[in-house]
Design a protein around this nucleic acid. Structure first.
Lengths: 201, 201
DNA sequence: CAACTTGTGGAGCGATCGCTCCCATACTAG
DNA sequence: CTAGTATGGGAGCGATCGCTCCACAAGTTG
């Protein structure tokens, strides 16, 4: 009923996500958003309530697209754990750079900018982090079940290091560090998984 | 000559640093700074030129105090490398929490908030990062010279992982992660240094 | 002391902030 | 068609932004 929208809400959220991602929450003004999304203030506020709510929508959108894609890439691969992990981590610090380098991870940027002050934001960033840890956990478990990892390896411990490394990598991508040293860090991080057990068959 | 200042410039910079550290650049207003430093706008601008210049002063102050202290703690210790590294990394995610947890690292927060957009800021954050890498390098070199590390270990490679891990740890401290998982990550990161070479004497 | 120099306090500048309101517009329902 | 409803466009709200200006205060110098 009544007049239909002249804009696509999903496209708008996508644009908002890119803007917040690049500039952060405080440095992005409602007018910037209006220009980018091609929305007048009235439409923007009618649709998204306010800036903060739109930001939460952007965070959710990021998790549903970028984060979900990352999770998929990690889960789906049916190849040796070490290779999967290596390529996944390389992708994390490369793919965001489809001509779009230096953006880092929206979740990490948000988490450091807003800290723990904003509870709704905190819940979302923490949930995103937990998803990543869980994905790492299941990949390592798969590797162990396949006999690629020593049973001596404590998976939860390894997850903590890999996860922490990923956060560091995201920061380094954000500040424009070259891929080579990042690759070095990745290769070394994977080495903590220890050598592949020799087949006892 | 003429009327002397009623405030201490160093104290003012210290207060400004704490404010910028907690809230970030964009979320800290000049009025916030004025209230905290007990400076009227006129004194603030006469002394520090403008907000951006004061922010650079704050960054420099942080590097000269917090960062320098971190570097010292790493260099000074005359004990086994692994112990030194472990305690240093633990201190990094604990000490900032003298009742002041969740602040993370001012340099990391700044680097992710402002990215590479602000050249003067970028130079400073990058220089701070390089200092940390260099400190790690010299500690590892010392350990190798003492025979605590295998000569097979590529020190530059290890520096990349440890440095990346430190960035990740700083992010996790900022978002309020518990000390236990961080300790786990630290212990595992140190394990990439490999076992101590058995004395060939 | 007077003359000069520098710091302090505060009013207030223009610009921008997040946001609201109103009205013409453009659609659906009857 | 008319009546009803939600949108698009945009002026503009009060608040705050970074910052400036100026009269006055508090010192030093001769």
């Amino acid at each position: 009923m009544a007049r239909p929208r002249q804009f696509d809400e999903k496209n708008a959220v996508t644009s908002a996500t890119e803007l917040f991602w690049r500039r952060g929450y405080h440095a992005t003004s409602v007018r910037d958003l209006g220009d980018e999304l091609k929305l007048t203030p009235s439409s923007l506020y009618r649709t998204f309530t306010d800036k903060h709510t739109l930001f939460l929508r952007a965070l959710d959108h990021y998790r549903a697209t970028e984060s979900a894609q990352a999770r998929q890439r990690l889960d789906a691969a049916d190849r040796p754990v070490r290779e999967v992990l290596r390529e996944w981590m390389l992708w994390l610090v490369t793919c965001p750079a489809d001509g779009m380098s230096g953006r880092g991870c929206f979740v990490v940027n948000t988490a450091t900018e807003l800290g723990t002050a904003d509870e709704k934001v905190r819940q979302r960033t923490e949930a995103a982090f937990e998803v990543t840890r869980q994905a790492l956990r299941s990949v390592l478990a798969k590797g162990r079940d396949r006999g690629e990892l020593s049973t001596d390896l404590d998976i939860d411990d390894a997850v903590e290091l890999l996860f922490t490394t990923v956060l560091g990598l995201r920061v380094r991508e954000r500040v424009g560090h070259d891929i080579e040293p990042l690759t070095t860090a990745i290769d070394l991080a994977i080495r903590v998984l220890g050598p592949a057990p020799t087949e006892p068959a």
